[in-house]
Computed example of a mutant assay.
Amino acid sequence: MADDAPFYAQDAGRNLARKFEMQAYDLRAHLKKFIQETGEEAISDGFGFLTESDELRTAYIEYSTDAADAMNRVHQYLDAVADALRKVNLNTETTDEDVAVLFGGNRNGGKR
C-alpha cells in the first residue's frame, strides 16, 4: 500500500450517503403527490358523501392513510441511513488523519 493511500474510500462513503439521501428525497416527493391524489379530500370528492358510499370511502381513506404512513416511515429510514453514513464517513476521515499523524504525516494528508 502506498504511503498516501487512504484506508477508507472516502468518496465511496460520501457517494453512498448521497444516494440514500436522494432516494429519501425522491420518496418524499412521491409521498406528497400520493397524499394529494389519494388523501381524504380527493377520495371524498371521488365518492361523494352518499350514505351508500360512506363505508367504502372510509375504507379507502384508511388504506390511503396507512400507505402514506408506511411511505413516510421508509422515507425517515432512508434519511436516517444517509445521516449515519455521513457520520461514519466523518469519523473515518478523522481517524485516518489521526493515524497519519501517528506515522509522521500531517492533518492535510502529506508528510511533515
Rank of each mutant, 00 (worst) to 15 (best):
S44W: 01
F47W: 05
V101K: 15
I61G: 02
D11M: 07
S64G: 13
V81I: 14
L50W: 04
A70T: 10
E37V: 01
S44D: 04
Q23S: 06
I43F: 03
F49T: 12
D11Q: 15
E21H: 08
F34W: 01
E97T: 14
S44V: 02
T38P: 00
F103A: 05
R18E: 09
Y8K: 06
T51H: 09
S64I: 06
D4C: 06
A59R: 12
E55T: 12
G105N: 12
R14P: 00
N91V: 07
M1E: 08
Y77N: 08
D4S: 11
R112L: 14
S64T: 07
D45R: 12
R107M: 02
T51Y: 08
N15V: 03
V101T: 10
A84W: 03
Y60M: 14
E55D: 09
S64V: 09
F103L: 07
Y8N: 10
L78T: 02
S44C: 02
R86N: 15
T65H: 05
L90G: 04
E37I: 02
G110N: 15
Y63G: 05
N108S: 15
V74I: 13
P6Q: 12
E41M: 03
T92K: 04
M71R: 02
L56W: 04
R112C: 13
K19W: 05
R73M: 08
T92M: 14
M1Q: 02
K32Q: 13
D79V: 00
A84I: 10
D66M: 06
R14N: 14
I43S: 01
Q76E: 08
E37Y: 05
E55H: 05
A12R: 11
N89F: 06
D45K: 11
L78W: 09
T94L: 15
N106F: 01
G13F: 11
L27N: 00
R73I: 07
R73G: 01
H75W: 13
D69S: 11
N15F: 10
E97W: 05
D66P: 00
A24G: 15
D83I: 13
G39D: 06
K87W: 07
L27A: 04
G39F: 11
G110M: 14
V101Y: 11
F49R: 12
A5L: 11
D96W: 02
R28V: 02
A59W: 00
F47K: 03
T65V: 08
Y60V: 03
E97D: 14
D79R: 09
